[in-house]
Design a binder for these strands. Sequence first.
DNA 1: GGCTCCATGTAAGTTGTTACATGATTCA
DNA 2: TGAATCATGTAACAACTTACATGGAGCC
Lengths: 193, 193
Amino acid sequence: MALSHAILVSLLDRAHSGYDLAKRFDQTVGFFWPVSHQQIYQELHKLAAAGRVRAETVTQSERPNRIVYELTDEGRRALDQWLTEPTEPPTFKEELLVKLFALDEHNRDDLLAEIRSRRQLHAERLARYEAIMAEHYPQPEALNARRRGRYLGLRMGILTERTTLAWCDEALALVALPKAAAAVGSGRPRPAD
Amino acid sequence: MALSHAILVSLLDRAHSGYDLAKRFDQTVGFFWPVSHQQIYQELHKLAAAGRVRAETVTQSERPNRIVYELTDEGRRALDQWLTEPTEPPTFKEELLVKLFALDEHNRDDLLAEIRSRRQLHAERLARYEAIMAEHYPQPEALNARRRGRYLGLRMGILTERTTLAWCDEALALVALPKAAAAVGSGRPRPAD
DNA sequence: GGCTCCATGTAAGTTGTTACATGATTCA
DNA sequence: TGAATCATGTAACAACTTACATGGAGCC
C-alpha cells in the first residue's frame, strides 16, 4: 500500500492540491508508482480522515476552488516509519514479452512491428530523461540529499531506457533472422530446431 | 486484460491444469505478468465459459482430481487476434525509488540498508537467469521461432538485472558520499546545496 | 462553435490480494 | 509430530480503471 506514501512523499516540500499532485505525479514519482487522478482524490480523503494531512480550501473567483493539503506531524511520523519497513520488490508487467512467448512463423511480422513501435517509445522517453538530466542535474555529487534521491530516480529511468533500447535492437535482429541461418562462421543454413 | 491471454499463451504447447499453470507461471510468463493461483483458477472458469478452453477432469486415486484445460480453436483465434492489437506500454512499480524521493540526512542509513538488500536480490536473480541461459539457450540463432521468443524474455531479464545492479552500486556510492564533497578536482569541501 | 484547461468529484466495474478451507500423501 | 506437496476452491477486501458529471475561462 505505497500509494498513500507516494502522496505523503510528494507533500514533503510544500502543500499541494489534488490537481497539482496528479500533474506532478505524471513527471516524477508517478514514473515509479503510476496513479490516476481518481486514486489521488480518494486517497487524500482517507489521509485527511487519518489525520496525516490537513485540508484547506482556497476560494477562487473565476476558477473552481482548490483544496490544498499539507503534511501533519502525524503524517511525517507515518512517512518516517514507512521508510524503516522492508521495501516491496519491484514489479513489471510487460505485455510485449508475453506476446513473444507466442512467437511463431505466422505472427512474426505483427510482432516485429510491435517491437519497432516499442523501440520508438523508449527512444522518446530516453531523450526526454536525458534532457531533464542535462538541464537539472549537471553535477550529482554537489546536490543535497533530497535532490540526490530524485537524481537517482531519473538515473534509473535513463539506464532502464537505454537497456530496453538495446534489447529492442537485439530482438529485431533475432526475430527477423531466417530460421537457423547463423551456423557459426559459415553462412550456410542448417536444419532447424 | 492480458491475464487471460497470458494463460492462453501458456496453453499453446500442451494442456495444463490450474495447478500446473500456477507453477509454470512462477518461472516463465509470470516474470513479465505476475499472477496468483486464485486469479488463474478464476480466469480458467471464465475462459471455459467463453469457449476458449475446454476442461477435462482427470480422476486420480491417492491424489485430488485434476482439471486439465486445453486450447479450443476459438481460443487460438482469440490469441491470434490479440497479437495484432496494439500492446500496452510496460508498467513498473518501484517502491524503493519512491522512498528515495524522501531521502534526507536522518533516514540515509535506513535507505542505504534497503539498497544493499535490494542489490542482493538482483544479484541472486541474475545468477539464476544466467544459469538458465547457459543451460538452455547456448545458441539463440539456432532456435526455432517459439523458443526465440522465450530466449528474448530471458535475455530481457538478464539485461534488466545487470542494469539494476549497476544502478545499486551507483546509488550506494552517491548516497554514502558526504554532503557536496566532490568539488571538481580538489578534495576540499564546498558549501552545500 | 468546439476544444482545452482548471478542479473536484461520484459510481460502477474489473482486477488483484489475503485469508481461509479441505484432505490425503510423502518426507524429515 | 509437523511440514510440505498435491489440487481446487470460496469469500471478503483492497486497489485500480473507465465512464460520467459539472461549469466557467480562454483560445482558435
